[in-house]
Write a protein that binds this DNA or RNA. Structure first.
Length: 217
DNA sequence: TGCCAGGCCGGGT
DNA sequence: ACCCGGCATGGC
């Protein structure tokens, strides 16, 4: 039952918005950096910050790790929360460089479960950031939950307010085929819908592709 | 002009 | 186990 509804949501969103083509990033490492920088932040601002790093040829684990904290902070300033995010990036880079020789391949080689544990142990990487890295940089079939996901499920009665991250994540992972491409598009489509229609203060539910979802079930 | 953006941490109940 | 303040820039 739940599986069927989740399928319908995906179909409706895909028909309406089309393929989203996430994640914007040329390399897995760039995706990781973007995942940390985009925490509670507009993607457009993140792109500016990444551009600053890329222009200077700093978008590489060892180089970025050896960059002084204050310099890093200034470069990523457009992404907001720049002082905390500089530290968070450093924490991630420390793990990557000191435990995996700067190689994401080595981190991911441990498998998604262990890699997730290692990522969550980094101060500044929470469940959403970790799962974004695993899905969009690692290519693992891991579902990413965010504020939009919860809001959309709530509005359609598929989730309750008290459900936490892990619970929402399992809702998708247990009821959908574990396919990276599907999880990739699905999360991106939920974001697209949340931005356009299912917004916090001014929802435009009349135009939302999910508007008459419950009628069908 | 205020509100919002692809969260998370640390300290306090 | 939750709750909350703090973190900050740029676009609409």
């Amino acid at each position: 039952m739940t599986a069927e509804i989740l399928n319908q949501i995906y179909q409706k969103l895909f028909r309406h918005f089309g393929p989203q083509g996430w994640w914007p990033g040329e390399t897995p490492f760039e995706v990781c950096v973007g995942a940390i920088l985009t925490q509670n932040t507009n993607w457009q601002n993140v792109e500016r910050a990444i551009k600053n790093l890329k222009e200077r040829g700093l978008l590489e684990p060892h180089k970025l790790f050896s960059l002084p904290l204050e310099e890093l902070a200034q470069l990523i300033r457009p992404a907001g929360y720049f002082r905390v995010k500089a530290k968070r990036l450093k924490n991630f880079l420390k793990l990557l460089v000191e435990e995996y020789q700067g190689s994401l391949e080595r981190l991911f080689a441990a498998g998604p479960e262990l890699a997730r544990q290692k990522l969550l142990a980094v101060s500044g990487i929470g469940p959403e950031t970790a799962d974004s890295i695993l899905l969009y940089a690692g290519g693992f079939p891991v579902f990413v939950v965010d504020a939009y996901t919860k809001r959309i499920l709530l509005r359609h009665g598929l989730a309750t307010e008290e459900m936490g991250y892990e619970e929402l994540k399992e809702l998708f992972e247990k009821n959908l085929p574990a396919q990276t491409e599907l999880f990739n598009e699905y999360h991106a489509l939920l974001v697209a819908c949340g931005k356009t229609y299912c917004r916090p203060r001014r929802p435009s539910c009349e135009k939302c592709p999910l508007k008459d979802l419950e009628k069908e079930f």
